[in-house]
Design a protein around this nucleic acid. Structure first.
Lengths: 190, 190
DNA sequence: CGGTCTCTTGACGGAGTTCAAAGCTAGTGG
DNA sequence: CCACTAGCTTTGAACTCCGTCAAGAGACCG
């Protein structure tokens, strides 16, 4: 269960055997069935959650159209957390919902602070995760601002080739900021 | 010169007098004239730079259209750094260019690492900056994906009311992902 | 005054949306 | 094993938002 997360961390920093054991004691396994919520708009994000198996979508509801706007998908090796809400105890503006049966490891805010206190090395790992996420968000902003629907779709399937098999097209359309109908046409043209 | 940066940090964490003095010794004042580059596409981002006075634009050149895509503006109290390049020593995909005469405080990668080593408290400050930036980037993605040009412009002037006075409209248009011509029409309608 | 840079305005074209309907696929129950 | 439903994708036609190109109007600066 932990192998995956430990390996992910070890790829960035080194932990000894005893540190690994210590680390494990902070986390709890958590399961969601398809269509269950991990977090609802307006609630506090109480846990930092790492996806071991499965997939969630992070989205908010457009107040005018009533439609979902997908912020990201969280599959294996992703963190599925509203950082702003988790860190600052502010009500979340996002929803996190399982689109497959999903297994996660999670930790509460208080435990998380204690964990970093116990194993300060981990600061570096979490900083790297944040930095990497920022770099990817910056690229996404540029893409949303200047690519056509076809270019955005092309870039998406290059970056996440396996997502097509597991995520319905209308969610990918929302992630790319186009309608499902138009994405279907883009795909049909090739 | 340092008052501003120190105050910014003190708003998040506490530093003693001696820590403040220590802190100051790591930084150098750096000046750019309007239209000078802080960083060019392809180069390494060698410094973490804090804007004391002035304004820069971060952008990349669209390979197809040859036009600028604005990633962000960095005015007073902003960090003007390509984090990915600075941290990972990868060639930057962005340009950073002064759009006003600009005064900054800056620190090299090596000094920065040493600074965090000397004053570990600062880890928290920089983590807060990263988290805050992520939250704002997430909101921007949602906005770019689902707002019309008029809504994006409206949101921009609410969020950054002072920018209209100092940044040319065609750069704001690029930041919002619309053409200068269309932004002009949006403004004319009201 | 004569450039250069920015903003505006007009006409046209194209990318993407909307609404509606029909086709597909997979699960479910009889 | 088939019929039925529900969710997803496709397709068509009309429409809208926004981009492109081209020209002109101000503003600033040497």
């Amino acid at each position: 269960m932990f192998d995956d997360l430990i390996a992910h961390i070890q790829s960035e920093i080194h932990l000894t055997e005893t540190e690994v054991e210590k680390f494990k004691s902070f986390w709890k396994v958590f399961e969601l069935s398809k269509d269950d919520y991990l977090l609802r708009n307006g609630d506090l994000c109480m846990f930092d959650s790492y996806v071991v198996k499965g997939c969630l979508k992070a989205y908010c509801i457009n107040t005018k159209t009533g439609k979902e706007d997908i912020l990201f998908f969280a599959t294996e090796k992703w963190w599925a957390t509203d950082l702003d809400s988790f860190v600052n105890k502010t009500p979340s503006i996002y929803n996190l919902k399982a689109i497959e049966n999903t297994t996660m490891l999670r930790i509460s805010r208080e435990s998380f602070i204690e964990l970093l206190d116990t194993l300060p090395k981990l600061e570096k790992y979490f900083r790297i995760i944040l930095e990497r996420y920022i770099a990817s968000m910056q690229r996404r902003v540029i893409i949303l601002n200047s690519y056509t629907a076809e270019e955005k779709y092309q870039h998406f399937i290059e970056q996440y080739p396996s997502m097509l098999q597991r995520v319905p097209q209308y969610l990918i359309a929302s992630y790319l900021g186009v309608t499902p109908e138009f994405l279907s046409r883009v795909r049909g043209k090739k």
